[in-house]
Amino acid sequence: MMILFQPPPQFGLLNASPFCMKLEAFLRYHKVPFEIKHARPDRGPYRKIPFVKFKDEIIGDSSAIINRITAEFQIPDPLTDTQKASSHAFKIMAEEHLYWAMVYSRWIEPDIWPQVKEAFFAPVPKLMRNFVANKIQKNVMKALEAQGIGRLPKAEIYARARLDLIAFSNWFAENPYIAGEDFSVYDFSIWAVLSGIISASLQTPLSKIAKEYPNLEQYLDRVNSRLDF
């Protein structure tokens, strides 16, 4: 049986990480047998989560794992090349751009950070908690700066994130899913990122912006009804 390594759930979601969320949901939807073991990112092959043990092989990166499982279990792919092209572009926008605005809104916003610190670092002994939490927060800030979004003023970060949300909203005004009429593997990525922003109990400034576009929540409802777990 496959072993899925990831942190425990947070914020009323399958997982605080959209990458863990999309992989767990994908496995559940396709009824791939697996068990979950909790692990830190630094235990994975790329020093990030999730990662899996499958047939005595450790595999990292959620997209690489999904590709491997799709091939191994011969999961059909009904999309045309054109559908794949546009869906891939939306996936990159969600996971490589909008995701980082979500990270900023959780880890850097001064009004939100105390809630994140309590959620993630409560198990750390009290004498070490602030030291460990602040060190990890600094590492997150370095990652944001390396990605580029952390170098921008806060207003610009949210302005750019809003453009992503508008793009998704405009798309879902005419299409039920990210590939059009067809529910596909790409929806797991979009659903996970948007859920992390909109559905999490942790409501950030980015959450408030996203809720200005009601059809994003309607999209999440459609996907949730398909997942049904």
Rank of each mutant, 00 (worst) to 15 (best):
N139L: 09
V124S: 04
P123N: 15
K154C: 11
I198W: 00
N170F: 07
F168Y: 08
I198F: 05
P153Y: 09
I197T: 06
V124A: 04
I149N: 03
P123K: 10
I178C: 03
S199M: 09
R160N: 14
G148I: 14
N175Y: 03
F183H: 04
M128C: 14
L127G: 03
A133W: 02
V185M: 05
I178R: 01
A143I: 09
L194F: 00
R160C: 13
A159M: 07
K154A: 12
L194A: 05
M128D: 14
V140H: 05
I178M: 02
G180M: 00
L144W: 02
I157L: 06
E174M: 08
P123M: 15
S189G: 06
V185H: 00
N130S: 14
V185C: 06
R160F: 12
I136Y: 09
A155G: 07
L194P: 05
R151T: 15
L194R: 01
A167F: 07
L144P: 04
P125A: 13
I198H: 00
A167H: 07
S189K: 08
Q137C: 11
S184H: 11
P123A: 10
M141Q: 14
N175S: 06
S195Y: 01
N175I: 08
P125L: 10
P176G: 07
Q137I: 08
E174Y: 08
I190W: 00
A161S: 11
V132D: 06
I178E: 05
S169D: 06
I178K: 01
N175T: 10
G150H: 08
L194D: 04
N175V: 07
A146Q: 11
K142W: 09
Q147A: 07
